[in-house]
Write a protein that binds this DNA or RNA. Structure first.
Lengths: 188, 188
DNA sequence: TCGTTTTTTCAGAAATTTCTGAAATTGCTA
DNA sequence: TAGCAATTTCAGAAATTTCTGAAAAAACGA
């Protein structure tokens, strides 16, 4: 592995982390290298930096492209493919969340909905169905929220996140000022 | 596998999903079985339902316990260990997020901070460090937000999530009602 | 303590995933 | 279309993970 120590540490860590998610070590490392690179890199440059086979890099890049996590670019007078991560880290977050939702949440929601439609016989099944209903509602709540958030401009999003719990204060104030009620059905 | 079709579908799906996260298939299946069960189950009951070896179940349960995802219980006059998931799905979410943060985010933040402290020589390293800084700030923002959210009672949390983007409206209203200012530094 | 039940451990088998080198394919230019 | 550069594919090798049965350990009651 041909990298400055600082970068190497990061790349190795990111590789390990990647393998805790669905992504394998090499793919994580390729991503890390691209993330910190000063300019787009071609496959051979990645091979050089990571010391893995050319074919491995090819497959890894393909996977990253399937995740929309790297962008393919070209240099004038050079037929090789160059790869880069988006400059904007928020763009990366957005893509990552979107893709994970697509692969993990959406299919689960589909299955849950199917199972909740089924007519069942036994008590055990009825109980299972009730539990699945709880899970379903949870997922719906989260995806609904996410669907709202994704629409926000990054500035606004950051503003909201920075606010954190203080939002609660604002909500309480709203409750006071508007004389309660609204939509949230509380019953205290 | 000895399960009603409805449950079996869910268990198989959850096993697959589990393996996209760091958790292996069997562990995911064990969890799914416990999640939909009407009562706590002992290891042999899980073996029966899933058709895997006793030792596999033992290891799986150990892992789930390490994740704090199952609770160990006892029945009077029965020495066997019984396992259950929390009744409250929100408790499950909280644990899951907390544990993943502990295993994935926190170590990454630690490494990022270390790398950002390092004195570097080359341009490439300086650029890498800048990128790592961006990632670090992002992680800090998220963990700060999470740290706020975890403190909220579930009701409030649900309220907030249901509100979604409307929070923004509430914020604007607040601005109007309180004559601007506050802490959120807007400058439009 | 001994005998019984339950759980855990662990070495090796089985299964799966990852990685490689060689060959095939693609795409370009002359 | 021949020749070259770049990329992709893929069968099998290598590495890793998962799973099992057997044995050990732990927990308990008599």
């Amino acid at each position: 592995m041909q990298l400055p120590p600082l970068v190497q540490t990061f790349v190795l860590h990111f590789g390990e982390m990647g393998s805790r998610w669905g992504i394998n070590r090499t793919v994580g490392q390729i991503y890390a290298v691209l993330f910190v690179a000063e300019r787009p890199l071609n496959a051979d440059e990645i091979v050089e930096r990571l010391g893995v086979s050319r074919s491995n890099v090819s497959m890894g890049l393909k996977e990253l492209q399937a995740w929309n996590l790297v962008r393919l670019q070209h240099r004038p007078g050079d037929r090789r493919d160059y790869f880069a991560t988006p400059e904007d880290v928020w763009q990366i977050v957005r893509t990552l969340v979107e893709e994970r939702k697509k692969r993990e949440i959406d299919p689960t929601l589909t299955i849950l909905r199917e199972l909740l439609m089924q007519r069942v016989e036994t008590d055990a099944e009825r109980h299972a169905q009730a539990r699945l209903g709880e899970m379903h509602d949870l997922f719906e709540l989260f995806t609904g929220w996410y669907d709202d958030m994704r629409r926000l401009e990054t500035d606004r999003l950051v503003q909201l996140l920075s606010l954190g719990t203080k939002v609660q204060k604002v909500l309480e104030m709203k409750d006071r000022l508007t004389g309660r009620g609204g939509r949230a059905d509380k019953r205290d």
